[in-house]
Every structure is written in structure tokens, then in C-alpha cells.
């Protein structure tokens, strides 16, 4: 095995991907060749330094509390939103059901009341006048007197 062959196989050797025979040849070459050995060392040193670099930095604090607080906050917000949504939906349903139950009950009453007012109450003055001719005459006289009084009052107001 020459140096180029050996270097070619470094990463596979590193990953333990070589079969036994090739692996032994790489190892034999590394034992014999200072240049390749130095290069191999370079790789392992660089990777060790990388591992050290990544793993010696740690979070500035325990993140557990942060995560749990965040989750609680989100759950609260979610709960508020669903509470509001449910509230509105519930009110809507309540109103709809209420209308369904109440309207059939209320409608005849309203209807009867309206009929009563229009058919029975409104004609009462006319019926009274028709029934009592004396009242009719009296009311006409009263109306005439009221007109006269108003004319007089207006004249007075304008002239004096």
C-alpha cells in the first residue's frame, strides 16, 4: 500500500468501514510511514478539538423552567381562546333554542293582543258615538265651542 492509497482510506478507516484485510494494511502502513501517521494524527486531533468545541459550551441556564413556563403560557392562551369561542357558541345556541321554544308560545299571545287592539279597541270611540246619538251631538257642540275658543284666543294673542 502506498501513501495515496492509505490517505484515500482514512475516513473509511475512521468510520470502521473497512474489512479486516484492508484495515490491517492501513494500520501496517501507518506503522511504517511517518508522513501518513502525522496526517492521520492531524485528522483525529482536529475531530477531537471539534468535539471539545461543541460539547464544552453549555446552556447558560437550566432550560427546563423556561420550557415549562412557555408551555403553560401557551396552554393558558389556548384555554382563553377556546373559552371565548365556546362562550360565544354557547350563547348562540342558547338564543336559537330559546327562540325556537319561546316564539311559538309568544306568537299567539302577540297575535291575540294585536287582533284585540286593532279589531276591538280602535273602533270603541266610533261605536260609542254611534250607540249614543246624544253624545254625538254633544261632542259636535264641544268641538264647535273648542274651535271658537281657539279662534278667539288666537285673535287676542295677535291683537294684543
Amino acid at each position: 500500500m502506498n501513501c495515496d492509497d492509505c490517505r484515500e482510506l482514512f475516513y473509511e478507516y475512521l468510520d470502521n468501514e473497512l474489512d479486516d484485510m484492508v484495515r490491517q494494511r492501513v494500520e501496517r502502513h501507518l506503522g511504517e510511514c511517518r508522513v501518513c501517521r502525522a496526517e492521520w494524527q492531524e485528522i483525529t486531533e482536529a475531530l477531537a478539538s471539534y468535539r471539545n468545541f461543541v460539547t464544552t459550551v453549555s446552556p447558560g441556564r437550566d432550560l427546563t423552567e423556561d420550557v415549562l413556563a412557555n408551555l403553560s403560557g401557551q396552554e393558558r392562551r389556548q384555554a382563553t381562546v377556546s373559552f371565548l369561542f365556546l362562550g360565544v357558541a354557547f350563547m348562540g345556541i342558547l338564543m336559537f333554542v330559546g327562540m325556537c321554544i319561546l316564539l311559538p308560545l309568544v306568537y299567539p299571545i302577540l297575535r291575540v293582543g294585536l287582533d284585540l287592539a286593532i279589531n276591538n279597541l280602535l273602533p270603541i270611540p266610533a261605536i260609542m258615538l254611534m250607540a249614543f246619538p246624544a253624545a254625538k251631538t254633544a261632542s259636535l257642540i264641544l268641538l264647535g265651542l273648542a274651535l271658537l275658543l281657539m279662534t278667539w284666543a288666537t285673535r287676542r294673542a295677535i291683537l294684543y
Partner: peptide, 13 residues
């Protein structure tokens, strides 16, 4: 991975 390793080697070189 090998590209990244090539790069890392340079810090030692």
C-alpha cells in the same frame, strides 16, 4: 461529512 472533515483538518495544519 468528508467535505466537513477536510475543512476541519485545516485547523491543525
Amino acid at each position: 461529512i468528508n467535505h466537513a472533515r477536510d475543512k476541519l483538518r485545516r485547523i491543525v495544519t
